[in-house]
Design a protein around this nucleic acid. Structure first.
Lengths: 152, 152
DNA sequence: ATATAGGGTACTGAACTGGTACCCTTTTGT
DNA sequence: ACAAAAGGGTACCAGTTCAGTACCCTATAT
């Protein structure tokens, strides 16, 4: 499993749409909702979360809307996920400190989990919104990056 | 977030313990449960799942127990997680086919998700039980492996 | 035959996610 | 000034999933 939530999935759709239609101008939440085919309340909730995370800027009032706060090349997928789900943390031990780590058995492998967590995070750090917004944006940057196809 | 389930966390503990005490001999579920400090039913459930996934072998009857089916170096973390949670799949589109993909908006970025999924899976593929079983097993193999630090 | 120990399934309670509804604040436009 | 448009925020409900428990069956050693 190890799934990301549907919110993050939607969130990337939302940002990709804004990136593709041109993030410079503001777009109303209702417009975005219609274009990507999701109910307005959902989209609205996601847009608000992005504003709070400084990924989007908003204009209130009539003729208001949302626009990208930065160019898509400077937004990483991990930032997007973090905006909607909080920081990426694979396991309890690696959240931020040792709050949850009441079982002492956890601690021997805590450093290992932190390293795993770091690697996962790097994977998401290395992917930009600009790549996600293009249907095969990742395939291109992937070719020179990881050509180790066969595993598993 | 993006957490693995607690079962996987426990599962790695269980296998690490078996690897450390010597996977060759059989160990009773009750013994494992006591040693890692978790209730027997939980540990038992996890052990059974590992047998089904061919990560462990079991002897039934009195004096029975569990032992590793392979040396720890040949067991990857992704196999462990897959045994307990099913195959690793970050998002709905990349599960196995396009069952869930009724929203047509999903499909433009489906190939991107599959690539991400593949990268994550590779991360878990590259980590062995032998590394996890040692408190700093990963730190050692990490140094020469991933020096792509910068992002984030 | 009995005790030990693994094999399997079903059930319950808690937590989380997804989604909806409601109300407030800000701005435009008349 | 007032109404409409649009974002801001919170609370709530329902469905699903996860964690944990209990129960019963099967197999082997003594």
């Amino acid at each position: 499993m190890l799934r990301i939530t549907r919110q993050s999935d939607y969130g990337i759709l939302v940002l990709s749409h804004l990136a593709n239609v041109g993030g410079g101008e503001t777009h109303a939440a209702s417009e975005v909702a219609v274009r990507i085919g999701l109910p307005l309340p959902i989209v609205s909730k996601i847009l608000k979360a992005f504003v709070r995370a400084d990924l989007l800027e908003s204009e209130r009032g009539a003729k208001g809307g949302y626009r990208l706060a930065r160019p898509p090349e400077e937004v990483s997928v991990s930032q997007i996920i973090a905006a909607l789900e909080g920081p990426i943390a694979i396991t309890f031990c690696s959240e931020d400190s040792d709050v949850e780590c009441s079982h002492e058995h956890c601690c021997p492998m805590r450093s290992n989990w932190q390293i795993i967590n770091h690697r996962i995070k790097q994977t998401f750090d290395s992917i930009t919104l600009a790549e996600m917004a293009k249907p095969d944006g990742l395939a291109m940057s992937q070719t020179e990056n990881s050509k180790s196809g066969g595993a598993s």
